[in-house]
Design a protein around this nucleic acid. Structure first.
Lengths: 214, 214
DNA sequence: TAGATTGTTAATCGATTAACAATC
DNA sequence: TAGATTGTTAATCGATTAACAATC
């Protein structure tokens, strides 16, 4: 086994943010940046930036800082933006349609392969160039299409059922939009987007602010 | 000033999750639970549960555990589910419409007051019982409606402009769906939902798994 | 009462920040 | 070269876990 240093999830979660800031710098035509300058822009410490980056390698140069384009590429590689994951969307309601129209995902290496639903009102309709497919045809579809990720935008009670079904069909990653913690007994990576959790945290913070300003 | 212990954001972020699990227990008709039993269900330590809860008060009873309904209510109060925040949605595209149809928010104390857009195709259309209002009428609307939170579902380049505008109109909280970190110079609480960041973390984890299984 | 389980203090672990030698 | 800034080690801080006395 190779010498393997486990990268903490705290670091991983900051990578997309670095990537965004570096994209912005590129657009601004800024070619080099120091950890100090970036720390001011991002509102974190320069120390943390250097520590984070050095988990993956020495991307900078003493006395100079970091080359923006190079660092942007390196972080892109770490995040796998060139790796091309295929994904499907299950559930073509508003959330599913919103995701199907997110063009940003493709820039980051995620390719939409199909959109599925059970409703005959939706099946056959075109969403962002993709005809909604009958969920009954999922098995057939997955036999002839390389799909790594399923985004689950189905009703609450359907979520665990659909999750289990796609996991058995070889899907390796799930992006879950239902307000539940999926526990499926397969070797699948799950990333939850708990919107109402996020909103409740906002509500808590608002209440705190109101209390303190009284 | 009162003796005030600052609650860490790590604890706050776990509260909605406790709330969900307790709701589930209630639905299952379970009336009491120990930190041990809950820890198994949630996949965290019993110690952490007790520590978290004791930031806010002693909700349990030695030898017995926690009364599910009581604890559910207490956490609900901490999160302010009875406090009734008014919110508006700005941008009635797919994401805005998806949010307008989320009935869960109301159960948690968030009341939809209005949906806004600039597109004449959308203005006047009904979404979940709310007629889409011309964004030009925002100022007038806010004069006669108590609104605490704005959910921003507008295009990338419009986001900071709209954020600034609503902040000046007295909105206290922003729920931001654009892939940028809002920096507005007002006393406003911002909660970001960076969907592509979340997806990229999923992509990273998938790559790691593939590497390790080779 | 005896058993169970909390509330809370103490120990450990991990993440962030500070400091500085290395070096461009 | 002198100045700037990284890479990296050490110190600090905060969060999680363990332990146990208190008590229902």
């Amino acid at each position: 086994m190779s010498v393997y240093k486990k990268i903490s999830i705290a670091v991983i979660k900051r990578l997309p943010r670095y990537y965004r800031y570096l994209s912005d710098l590129l657009k601004l035509g800024i070619t080099r940046i120091s950890s100090k300058e970036l720390s001011i822009r991002m509102g974190i410490t320069a120390s943390q930036i250097r520590q984070d980056l050095n988990c993956f390698g020495g991307f900078g140069q003493q006395g100079y800082g970091y080359n923006v384009e190079y660092l942007h590429n390196e972080i892109g590689n770490i995040l796998g933006v060139n790796d091309k994951f295929g994904y499907i969307i299950i559930g073509a309601g508003n959330m599913g349609q919103a995701l199907a129209n997110y063009t940003n995902f493709e820039k980051r290496g995620f390719i939409l392969k199909g959109v599925f639903d059970v409703s005959s009102d939706l099946i056959g309709q075109k969403i962002n160039g993709h005809e909604v497919i009958d969920l009954n045809n999922l098995e057939t579809f997955l036999k002839s299409n390389k799909v790594d990720i399923a985004m689950l935008c189905v009703p609450y009670d359907q979520t665990p059922i659909v999750a289990d079904r796609v996991a058995r069909l070889g899907i390796k990653g799930l992006w879950n939009f239902s307000p539940m913690d999926l526990k499926i007994p397969h070797d699948v990576i799950i990333e939850n987007v708990h919107l109402s959790d996020s909103l409740m945290v906002l509500g808590y913070k608002l209440n705190e602010k109101l209390k303190n300003s009284q």
